[in-house]
C-alpha cells in the first residue's frame, strides 16, 4: 500500500463528497423556497425527493451511465447520484428552515419595504441558516459514506481500499479506509459547524448578557 496513493484516494473522496453537497444545496435553496411559497407543492416535492433517497445507490451508479450517456467509470455518475441524495435531504431542511422564520420577522421585512428577492436573500435565508447548517452536516456525512459504494464500479476513492482489503483478505487497507472515512466525515462536519457559527454570530450571543 502506497501512502501517496492513499492521499490521492482521500482527495478524490473529498471532492466526490463536497461537490455534490454544494450542487445539492444550490438546487435545494430555490426548491425549498418554492415548497414554502406554494404550500401545495410542499407535500409532492418532499414526496418525490424523499423517494429519490430510497433508490439504492448501487442501482443509481449503474443506471446513470445509461441515462446520461457517460462512461461507467466516470466520476460524473457519482457526482450526479450524490447530488440527488443531497437534494433529497436538503429540500426538506431548507423548506423547514424557511418555515421556522418567525412570522413577525417576515411581516416586518415586508412592511419595511423589502422586495421579494432581497427579502429572501437578506432576511429569510440568513435567519434559516442554523437549520440549513444542521441539515448540511447530515448530508455531508451521508455523502462520505455513500461515495464508498462506487468503489464496486471501480471509481477511485477511499472505498477502493475496502475492496482491496476484501479481495486480499488483508485488514490493513480495510482499516485505513474506514479510519480515513471517519476522519473525512468528522472534518466536513466540523467545517460546516464552524461555517454555520461564523454566519450566525447572533445565535452564539443568545442569552449571553
Amino acid at each position: 500500500m502506497d501512502w501517496l496513493e492513499v492521499v490521492v484516494l482521500f482527495l478524490q473522496h473529498l471532492w466526490l463528497s463536497v461537490v455534490p453537497l454544494l450542487l445539492g444545496l444550490a438546487v435545494a435553496i430555490p426548491l425549498g423556497w418554492l415548497a414554502r411559497r406554494y404550500r401545495r407543492l410542499y407535500a409532492p416535492m418532499l414526496g418525490v425527493t424523499g423517494l429519490a433517497y430510497t433508490i439504492p445507490s448501487l442501482a443509481l451508479f449503474v443506471a446513470l451511465p445509461v441515462i446520461l450517456g457517460t462512461q461507467i467509470l466516470s466520476p460524473v455518475n457519482v457526482v450526479v447520484a450524490l447530488t440527488i441524495y443531497t437534494l433529497a435531504l436538503l429540500v426538506r431542511t431548507v423548506a423547514d428552515g424557511l418555515g421556522a422564520v418567525p412570522d413577525d420577522v417576515r411581516q416586518a421585512a415586508l412592511a419595511m419595504g423589502y422586495r421579494p428577492l432581497p427579502r429572501f436573500l437578506r432576511v429569510e435565508l440568513p435567519v434559516a441558516v442554523p437549520v440549513i447548517g444542521a441539515g448540511l452536516r447530515v448530508a455531508a456525512v451521508s455523502n462520505v459514506s455513500l461515495v464508498t459504494v462506487s468503489a464496486l464500479l471501480g471509481v477511485p476513492q477511499l472505498g477502493a481500499l475496502f475492496v482491496d482489503g476484501l479481495n486480499r483478505a488483508y485488514l490493513a487497507p480495510l482499516i485505513t479506509g474506514i479510519v480515513l472515512c471517519v476522519v473525512l466525515a468528522l472534518l466536513l462536519d466540523g467545517l460546516i459547524l464552524l461555517g454555520t457559527r461564523a454566519l450566525t454570530p447572533w445565535q452564539r450571543e443568545r442569552g449571553a448578557t
Partner: peptide, 18 residues
C-alpha cells in the same frame, strides 16, 4: 416604495434576529 415611506411597528417588535 410606498412601504419605505411609512413607518410600521409590529406586535412583538418583529426585529431581525440576525
Amino acid at each position: 416604495t410606498l412601504r419605505r415611506g411609512i413607518g410600521y411597528v409590529i406586535q412583538h417588535a418583529g426585529l431581525f434576529p440576525h
